[in-house]
Design a protein around this nucleic acid. Structure first.
Lengths: 234, 234
DNA sequence: CGTCGAAGTATTGTCGGCAATATAGAAATT
DNA sequence: AATTTCTATATTGCCGACAATACTTCGACG
């Protein structure tokens, strides 16, 4: 009996083209492939990823919007450095945003938001540290951001969260796991918010993200060494 | 004698398509045309602006990256509210970023950077308040951001500066001029940085941007009333 | 020898079209 | 009548090609 599905069941999940390019370029960026301001033309990206120019263009535009590459007319895309130092800078800005969000959230405590905050926290604790895609962690941070009451701030935090999540997915679970103290750190933030102590909430969030920044920088270091190994093989 | 130039000398400056759409959508957004979560499909935008789908797509993607619209598969683009309140939120985040930049800059004072800072300030003062495109003001803010030493922070500040500049250009000079006290406010920031007083620099920057936020909110109000007038005509 | 200019190449912005997928509406069933 | 299924439409993601523009190389000229 002949199959009812087309002959090529999964050539490409329809809307994966752009994502493939973004992911591939991010991975190369982390491994330091284009270090030194190397330039990549659209045609080269087309050849490298086997997709049309349209998804390549959109991917490059997205990476430009994320501040990871620079697009120059008829000059190709210049890749900005993206190593441990840059990841630290990203985390510094993220900290700036999320610390302010925690501070604002503490000043607007509300029974409903408190309930959702602790619900998100419970989800993390119940997962027992097993959360490959950081789903619950992201939910908690998003909830705190939303509790700030500033939609723009919340949106900006989500943007950074997506970048960081992409980096996490590329690096993999190998060395980028939730450190053990995360639950305590989260609890400290939530307790401060519950008590309406803005300064304490800000300090707790700052400490939490400082830890996360260290983990990320280490992972980026590992990624870089992996990249150089590949270069040795080639 | 036949003209040597093509018959249509300036049909469109080649790379204006995307910009036209971005500008048009931003203007409509400010005037409150799509208030209430209205949806706009790519085909509608094509008809509205007379360009192909490609620049429309890229414009929508850019606006999404700027957090001004939301793109849903096969549902069209939903326009997020963009009035005085949202402009205030934007300025709040901008303030967060630039205040931190000023604070960092004060902690890294350097003869060269100080020279470029005061050079930028002199340009503003010499222009005598006549700076239609805010060129020198932007230069000063960019210079302060760069003086922070955090490239990511500086890049993010530039991103916000571009959004704000776009809003300025759309609103026009009518009600969005440099208020008289700007020179003093700028000088206060620079003096604090020169003395290495991080807290004073942060406070001065905060005060400066608070003034700017008020002006912007007023301008947005005016824009909204203009939009409603047009609606009355129609 | 250095500088300017022009042909040639490379790169990008835009366009129309196609296929896939989601939404909406109609028809049939319970 | 309400719900489900099926069809038709609408909308999007992707593709290949064209034209305009910037860059490069080569040659002519001072």
């Amino acid at each position: 009996m002949p199959s009812l599905t087309p002959l090529t069941p999964n050539p490409r999940p329809r809307s994966a083209g752009k994502h493939i390019v973004v992911r591939g370029l991010l991975a190369g960026l982390l491994k330091g492939e284009w270090v030194g301001g190397a330039r990549l033309t659209e045609a080269e990206a087309v050849e490298k990823f086997g997709v049309s120019r349209t998804p390549v263009r959109e991917a490059l535009l997205e990476l430009q919007g994320l501040g990871l590459i620079e697009l120059r007319r008829n000059c190709g895309a210049v890749f900005l450095p993206f190593g441990p130092d840059q990841l630290r800078e990203i985390y510094d800005v993220r900290s700036l945003l999320e610390v302010e969000a925690a501070r604002l959230a503490a000043g607007r405590v509300d029974a409903d938001t408190l309930r959702s905050l602790f619900a998100a926290f419970t989800m993390i604790r119940e997962s027992g540290g097993i959360d490959p895609d950081w789903k619950h962690d992201r939910t908690l941070h998003r909830t705190i951001a939303a509790a700030s009451g500033n939609h723009r701030l919340s949106s900006e935090i989500s943007r950074y969260g997506e970048v960081i999540q992409s980096v996490r997915e590329i690096v993999g679970e190998q060395s980028y796991g939730i450190h053990e103290t995360t639950a305590d750190e989260h609890l400290a933030i939530l307790e401060a918010i519950r008590q309406g102590d803005a300064d304490a909430a800000a300090a707790a969030m700052k400490a939490h993200l400082s830890q996360a920044s260290d983990s990320a920088a280490k992972a980026a270091d590992l990624m870089r060494s992996l990249g150089s190994e590949e270069q040795v093989e080639a």
